[in-house]
């Protein structure tokens, strides 16, 4: 690996100053499970001279819940803390669908949802799940903080709208009422430790047998994770039924713009969007009905 300088700021302000003073040559690091590999292989998209370890900053380690503010996950909170958290398990258990399948046990000891989002891989397993939950990211920069819906963060493969002088601080998940259920599933050719051929995050809220809200988000079938607004909107007001769910799955399939590569052909991936959207919505419905 080429030479890097290492900084470990203790406040958001100090981290932002380090990032803005470095003129675009610094990268924040949480678990480093992507960044260290990219630096080691000399990935031209990650030309960092300074690694800013953000794990000593309190806001980036926050993991808190209240019914009014919802769930806040700091950008550096590791996957194992997410699936070990009582509030996540009580109110946001579908987030564990992602937290338990990113990498293996060792990776889950370091990797974070925040890092997954900033790495902006089209296949990032936490991103469609966060989008389906209506999550909003808090980003700090030299002129203050701003809030951006997670579906707007990724702008291309490994590209985000987070500036070189900005820092992802945390991700907020609004509280869900009764009748809410969600799910993330992916297709891989083995049981674990693989990159999604396609993935689908889905959430629904059901009242009196009808969808009152729904979201569908796709992974690995476009340059970025996608929110398929029309798929979710097609369900709102509909009675829970196989037909309504199949209609949403058709819309998700139509929105997918996959490439063919070694993991699967474009046609195969579009087919997976249909199947996985149906399954994710059905699981979300089961969970919603179980919770209400």
């Amino acid at each position: 690996m080429k030479w890097i300088d290492f900084e470990k700021p203790k406040t958001v302000e100090d981290a932002v100053k380090l990032l803005s003073d470095s003129g675009g040559n610094a990268r924040p690091m949480a678990g480093g499970t992507d960044l260290i590999v990219q630096l080691r292989v000399g990935d031209p998209r990650v030309n960092a001279d300074v690694v800013v370890d953000i794990k000593s900053i309190p806001e980036l380690n926050e993991l808190s819940y209240s019914s009014s503010k919802g769930l806040t996950i700091g950008a550096a909170v590791e996957c194992y803390k997410i699936y070990g958290d009582a509030n996540v398990n009580s109110h946001f258990s579908a987030l564990n669908d992602s937290a338990t399948l990113i990498g293996g046990t060792q990776i889950q000891g370091r990797a974070s949802f925040g890092g997954n989002l900033c790495n902006a891989a089209p296949s990032g397993d936490s991103i469609p799940n966060m989008i389906a939950h209506g999550a909003v990211a808090t980003i700090a920069g030299p002129s203050g903080t701003r809030e951006v819906p997670v579906e707007d963060i990724c702008t291309g493969p490994r590209q985000t709208l987070i500036g070189d002088d900005e820092l992802l601080v945390s991700i907020n998940f609004p509280s869900n009422g009764s009748g809410f259920g969600a799910n993330y599933i992916r297709f891989i050719p083995r049981n674990e430790m693989d990159i999604a051929v396609a993935g689908v995050g889905a959430s629904v809220t059901i009242e009196d047998g009808k969808f009152t809200s729904a979201k569908v988000s796709l992974a690995s079938v476009a340059p970025t994770p996608l929110l398929v607004k029309e798929a979710g909107e097609s369900l709102v007001g509909e009675t829970v039924s196989e037909e309504a769910i199949q209609n949403a799955a058709n819309l998700a399939k139509a929105a997918a713009k996959p490439i063919s590569d070694m993991r699967g052909t474009a046609d195969y991936r579009k087919h997976l969007c249909d199947v996985l959207t149906r399954r994710a919505l059905n699981t979300a419905v089961e969970r919603a009905q179980g919770a209400s």
């Binding site: 290492f6 678990g31 480093g32 499970t33 260290i36 590999v37 690694v51 370890d53 794990k55 590791e78 194992y80 046990t105 060792q106 990776i107 000891g109 370091r110």
Partner: peptide
């Protein structure tokens, strides 16, 4: 916690 030590910097 178990981790892969190739993905941890020594300074960490």
């Amino acid at each position: 916690r178990i981790v892969t030590s190739c993905l941890v910097l020594g300074v960490e």
